[in-house]
């Protein structure tokens, strides 16, 4: 199986100071891939540089075998990549329905009504909120709107930057479940997570980033069992 997304030797940062350096990353089709690592390891920068929100200084990015290095964000959406940023991930003064609608502008779905119906089937909570401004929703519901908006362009690859940041533990589980549901619809997921232990549990593939470089990669289960990873990144406890 060839990788859907293939990142090689990616270097990016601000003003000559690289934040990530020579990062390699392959994401298989229809997998959940997770990036974990300590604060300041460059996880978000990696995601942003894949999505052309940060200028890259070196390396290549390929999507389904096609070189997409240097393409602008607006050009990536039609190719089948969508992203959900960590903060400020909804348009607060737009209604939920309008938020979802915005997701179709850069890459109109083939069958808009069906796409929207599928998304609302994934997030039934949103159905009753369609006419409400997204700013009035709870944090978890906003995350659903944000993911829903990103799915409206029918992406093949969904980039999520810390989708559980700031959510209550109850919602945290729910969002991870939803991510697995999204995967079931055929979408490949690459996400950055702080809640490393839970993230590894749902990960097909995980990458640990330290100081802007690849540290270790493996399946979620492998990393959960790895002593070194447990000690350094999972709070030192026993494997759960």
């Amino acid at each position: 199986m060839t990788a859907l997304l293939s990142v090689q030797g990616l270097t990016a940062g601000y003003g000559g100071m690289p934040i990530i350096e020579g990062v390699d990353l392959d994401v298989e089709e229809n997998a959940v891939a997770v990036i974990i690592g300590p604060n300041g390891a460059g996880k978000s920068t990696l995601l942003k540089s894949i999505f052309a929100l940060t200028k890259i200084a070196g390396g290549t990015i390929a999507m389904a075998g096609r070189d997409i290095t240097g393409l602008a964000t607006a050009a990536l959406v039609p190719i089948g990549i969508s992203a959900v940023p960590q903060n400020r991930n909804v348009f607060p003064n737009l209604t939920v329905a309008e938020n979802l609608d915005i997701g179709t502008y850069a890459a109109p779905p083939r069958d808009r009504a069906r796409t929207e119906a599928n998304i609302l089937a994934l997030f039934p909570d949103l159905r009753a909120k369609l006419g409400q401004p997204a700013g009035e929703l709870s944090g978890g519901q906003r995350q659903m709107v944000a993911i829903g908006r990103a799915l409206m362009s029918e992406p093949r690859l969904l980039l999520l930057d810390e989708p559980t940041a700031g959510l209550s533990p109850a919602y945290l589980e729910k969002i991870f479940d939803l991510i697995l549901d999204v995967r079931k619809t055929g979408v490949t997921i690459l996400m950055v997570e702080q809640n490393a232990r839970q993230a590894l549990r749902i990960a097909d593939r995980a990458h640990v980033l330290v100081n802007g470089r690849n540290f270790i990669s493996g399946s979620g289960a492998e990393l959960l069992a790895n002593d070194n990873v447990r000690r350094s990144f999972l709070g030192g406890g026993e494997a759960a």
Binding site: F51, L53, T73, A74, L76, V77, P78, A83, V84, P85, R88, N89, V90, F91, P92, N93, L94, E98, D101, I102, G103, Y105, A106, A107, R149, A150, S153
Partner: peptide, 24 residues
């Protein structure tokens, strides 16, 4: 409220960075 351009304008006014992420 109804047109694509109008909603894009409100989106950029609301969250310019997210609007860029959404490919507007």
């Amino acid at each position: 409220t109804r047109s694509k351009t109008g909603r894009s304008m409100r989106a950029v006014s609301d969250e310019p960075e997210l609007a860029a992420v959404a490919g507007i």
